[in-house]
């Protein structure tokens, strides 16, 4: 009935384009895995190989013994975990206030919150760095976490989601004499699980990968996070690429696993909010 292709075989060409692009996307990451399993000789020979002759799983042991990579891992986990918990508390509670309460200056305050989306991190980094160094917060967990405790994306997301919640549900809670905080925790939050999942996922991945702030806010080996710790293999004369790659794999795998199980949500989240 209707011709669906631009030229004969267009469907096949389209398929080929997608497959090639996917291959180009994945191959560098597979090469990273290969690199993480290569011996020092293979890495430094100036004769790079696509795949090692013997899989040197040992690199991962060296990674955790020669450099305190375990410590970096824990620091990353603490930073991303704490920021995620903070978002899961602060974003929905503020979003709920905007969605379901009427109060003076509501519109103005909402615009104020949204306007923070236009203040990029590079504008905040110098003043926050200066203040934190005066407070003695460099090389501390609070120093890593506090600049990211909540954000307008999360508040916006929760407000949109909670606006659709029926008012009767909340009124019923009030009629039962429940306090406002109790209504929020017992009635509102459980209804918001899908939105909270998207929020948690994005917040965690974003902070897990965060590079610029941990680079500025930490100087001691003890307090480095993984993305910054990776750069430490760059020594003065040479870079231990197999260890760098092994560290990259350790940093990458949790995100990949998380992504694999939650792809549907993530794709929807990206499409919905254009989250950066």
């Amino acid at each position: 009935m209707r011709r669906d292709s631009l030229f004969p075989g267009a469907r096949f060409v389209g398929y080929a384009v997608v497959v090639v692009c996917c291959a180009l996307t994945v191959i560098p990451l597979l090469y990273m895995v290969s690199l993480s399993l290569q011996s020092d000789a293979e890495v430094f020979a100036g004769n790079p190989v696509l795949w090692p002759a013997h899989l040197r799983v040992d690199n991962f042991a060296v990674l955790f013994s020669r450099v305190p990579f375990g410590r970096f891992f824990v620091n990353s986990l603490v930073m991303a975990g704490l920021v995620t918990v903070a978002h899961l508390v602060l974003d929905p509670i503020a979003g709920y206030a905007f969605a379901k309460f009427s109060f003076p200056f509501r519109r103005t305050l909402f615009v104020v919150v949204l306007s923070t989306l236009m203040i990029p991190f590079f504008v905040r980094m110098i003043p926050v760095y200066v203040v934190f160094s005066q407070l003695g917060w460099l090389n501390t967990y609070q120093g890593l976490v506090v600049p990211f405790l909540c954000d307008a994306y999360g508040i916006f997301l929760m407000r949109q989601f909670l606006s659709a919640l029926p008012d009767e549900l909340i009124d019923a809670g009030r009629a039962d004499g429940a306090g406002e905080l109790r209504i929020f925790l017992r009635i509102v939050l459980p209804q918001a699980k899908p939105a909270l999942a998207v929020l948690a996922l994005f917040t965690f991945v974003f902070q897990w990968n965060n590079f610029l702030w941990p680079l500025l806010a930490t100087t001691t080996t003890d307090m480095r996070t993984m993305p910054v710790g990776l750069t430490l293999f760059n020594q003065e004369y040479f870079t231990q690429w197999n260890l760098t790659a092994a560290g990259s794999v350790v940093l990458f795998v949790p995100t990949a696993v998380l992504f694999f199980f939650t792809q549907r949500y993530l794709v929807r989240g990206v499409a919905l909010t254009g989250l950066k």
Binding site: T25, V26, N210, L251, F259, F260
Partner: peptide, 14 residues
């Protein structure tokens, strides 16, 4: 779609 999105979720450090 999933494969294409992977680099976007990979740390800039990597």
């Amino acid at each position: 779609r999933g494969i294409l999105l992977v680099p976007y979720l990979t740390s800039v450090a990597i």
